[in-house]
Amino acid sequence: MRAVRAVTGRALPLDRRDVDTDQIIPSDWLKRIERTGYGAGLFAAWCADPGFVLNDPRFAGATVLVAGANFGCGSSREHAAWALDDRGFRAVVAPSFADIFRSNCLAVGLVLAELPAADVARILAAVAADPLIELTVDVDRRSVAVPALGYHAPFAIDDSSRARLLAGRDEIDLTLAHAPAIAAYESQRAAWLPRVAGTGRASGSSPRSRPSAS
């Protein structure tokens, strides 16, 4: 994942709550097997409306999305984070986020900042009135600033998420450093726990024959 210290840029005001991941990236786009190229699908259904804010040229180039509460609810599709990232968004500011979306954004290096609903409403209104207003979402200092409003407020981010964003660390490498702890845990799991018939050949080995249908 990409390391990120702070995101500074103009904002896209999306004044809606409960924006679900089916809206962020419609399921038609989920048929692809690649990890990139989802930007064109971002809010694809809503973009059919010429009045939709993402179609408004005044907000072109925005890097911070500002939205209503419970952003990213619904489906676990990480494609939603990929689509935002691919379209150039580096941070999202909202009163609250759905849990799975939050984990997915962390994996991608997309910064999420939760602010009080009244503050988000104020920023939404200001940005809608003046698209040139800039925001800074600072991971290092755990703060959001909107200089044009004289606004500066902290946002909550746990130490571990912050460290991951700042360092851009590969989480699998981090976990594999604890392989002995994983093996120790495995050695004391109950023997009766279920096992599937997989063989677990390493990557690159010859394919095993398909299980027969019965």
Partner: peptide, 18 residues
């Protein structure tokens, strides 16, 4: 619980989730 694709990769590789 549901997880995203990066975490699917993490579980495949480590059988754990953070």
């Amino acid at each position: 619980f549901g997880i995203g694709t990066s975490d699917v990769e993490h579980v495949l590789a480590t059988q754990t989730i953070s």
